[in-house]
Simulated assay, not measured.
Amino acid sequence: MTKHISVPVDVDLFLSLVDFLRSKSDSREPVEVISTAIEYWLDSASWKPELLTESSTRGYQWKSLFLPEGTEIRMQYKGAYSYAKVEGDEIIYNGKSISPGSLANTIASSSRNAWKDLWVKRPDDKEWRLADDCRNEQNDTA
Rank of each mutant, 00 (worst) to 15 (best):
E54A: 13
K85W: 01
D125H: 13
V7G: 03
A84W: 01
D133S: 13
L130Y: 04
V33I: 14
F66H: 05
S35G: 14
G79Y: 00
T106P: 02
S97A: 15
Y81C: 09
T141Y: 08
D12I: 03
I34E: 07
G70C: 04
A84T: 00
S23H: 08
R58H: 12
P30R: 05
I34G: 07
K126L: 13
R22Q: 14
A37Q: 07
I107G: 01
K126S: 10
D43S: 07
Q138V: 00
G59A: 04
A84S: 05
I5M: 09
L13R: 09
S97N: 10
R112L: 08
F20T: 09
Q61L: 12
L17Q: 01
V31Q: 15
E29S: 06
S35T: 12
P68L: 06
I38E: 09
V86P: 01
F20K: 12
P100G: 02
P30D: 08
I91S: 03
E39G: 11
E87C: 07
F20W: 10
D133K: 14
L67E: 00
S23R: 11
K126I: 13
D133T: 10
R28A: 07
A114G: 03
K63Q: 13
M1A: 11
K126V: 14
W62H: 06
M1E: 11
K48I: 14
Y77W: 15
E50S: 08
G59D: 03
K48L: 13
W47I: 14
S27N: 11
E54I: 11
P49I: 05
A84C: 02
A80H: 06
D19L: 10
S64C: 03
Y77I: 05
T106N: 08
V9A: 06
S46C: 08
S46L: 12
E32Q: 13
T106E: 10
T141E: 13
W119P: 01
Y93P: 01
S27E: 13
G79T: 03
S23D: 12
S55R: 00
E72R: 14
I98K: 04
T141C: 05
V18W: 07
R58G: 08
A84P: 00
S111E: 15
A104L: 08
Y40N: 09
A131Y: 03
E87G: 03
N113L: 13
F14R: 08
L13Q: 10
I73S: 00
G59P: 01
C134W: 02
V7Q: 00
R58A: 11
P123S: 04
Y40Q: 06
M75E: 04
